[in-house]
């Protein structure tokens, strides 16, 4: 006859999970606020070269203040043959094709102008100060980059940024 008799009829109480959604929502909001969304998933593969002492492009401002150009090999290998040296330019996810099957940098000027016209009113930087960032693959030929640069010079968009992967930056 023990004093502490096991009460077999009592069931183990279940853990109250009603606050679980709250915790998960908290996590969700944290991630929503802390991350920047990828605006485009480029249709070309870009593997940036490494560099150091590069400037952080979007430390305290919105990503939309910078216009990104992608220069790389098309994701779809069948299309690679259509482009000069196998590299294609992706502007807002549209790979630029041309009648003669070469890549087309001529579209850069118009693209940049359209982008500038669509900027919201709170961005007051003049065209020559709006950064155009070229994200090029490490094996992309420099000639193409200079073609893009020339197009930008033509329309007076005078700030260019050459993207690199910076390992030294915190």
């Amino acid at each position: 006859m023990s004093k502490f008799k096991k009460d077999s009829s009592r069931e183990m109480p279940g853990v109250n999970t009603s606050s679980l959604p709250d915790i998960v929502f908290m996590l969700l909001f944290f991630f929503m606020v802390a991350t920047t969304s990828k605006e485009v998933d480029p249709t070309v593969n870009v593997d940036s070269p490494e560099g150091s002492r590069a400037t952080e492009l979007t430390p305290y401002k919105q990503r939309s203040e910078v216009d990104f150009l992608y220069l790389g090999k098309p994701r779809n290998p069948a299309r690679a043959a259509e482009f000069k040296m196998g590299f294609a330019l992706s502007l807002d996810n549209v790979v630029q094709p041309t009648a003669d099957g070469l890549y087309n940098t001529n579209a850069v000027g118009q693209w940049k102008k359209d982008k500038f016209d669509q900027k919201p009113a709170r961005m007051t930087a003049p065209l020559e100060a709006v950064i155009t960032c070229v994200k090029a693959d490490k094996s992309a030929p420099s000639g193409l980059i200079f073609d893009i640069r020339k197009e930008l010079q033509e329309i007076n968009a005078l700030t260019i940024a050459y993207a690199v992967r910076d390992n030294g930056l915190i």
Partner: peptide, 26 residues
């Protein structure tokens, strides 16, 4: 909520954009 959380985890990128800013001559 988990579903939403995972969606945001997958669609967001954490990498920073670093580049050399140069000006093109007029």
């Amino acid at each position: 909520a988990f579903l939403l959380l995972i969606f945001f985890l997958v669609t967001t990128t954490m990498d920073k954009d670093t580049a050399f800013i140069r000006s093109i001559p007029k």
